[in-house]
Design a protein around this nucleic acid. Sequence first.
DNA 1: ACACAAGGTGCTTTTTAATGCACTTTATAC
DNA 2: GTATAAAGTGCATTAAAAAGCACCTTGTGT
Lengths: 72, 72
Amino acid sequence: MHFHQLIKTLKERREALQVTQYDLAELAGVGLRTLKQVESGKGNPTVITLQKIADVLGMELCLKVKATKSDI
Amino acid sequence: MHFHQLIKTLKERREALQVTQYDLAELAGVGLRTLKQVESGKGNPTVITLQKIADVLGMELCLKVKATKSDI
DNA sequence: ACACAAGGTGCTTTTTAATGCACTTTATAC
DNA sequence: GTATAAAGTGCATTAAAAAGCACCTTGTGT
């Protein structure tokens, strides 16, 4: 999952849950400016920042072995 | 997947592939000091740093909906 | 005991993420 | 058109990640 896709997933999830950036930032304990920056694709957040956000959205970061061409 | 578990997974994967920290850092294009810090659990890497490392190890970051108690 | 390789750590500098504030943009509703 | 809400952006400050360097620790082999 590329960086841009991760961000898109978070943003779509927030919108699906109908939470505003303001509320999500409050709930996640990150600055509103930071969340805005992340969602607009301008940033390179730390893992902890990303996890705080994902957590509130009921999601989590994971690592998996990449699919190879032979898997397709 | 908690932060500590993410790191552990990366470290185990590196060891399974029998790659040294030095080589991994070179291949991933991150500083050796940074990789050491991450693997020893002292850091809070940026997503891009984590992805560079995971990529070389044939892994990728992903986001998934958290399991709930009712799933267990 | 010694040499070597790999991993971990303290110190430092440079870069950049995190943050707040104020402003703009955009869409929606009156 | 204008108020309101939500999202995006420029600027400045603070905190912390990224990085290199030198050194310590640990394990392995001779």
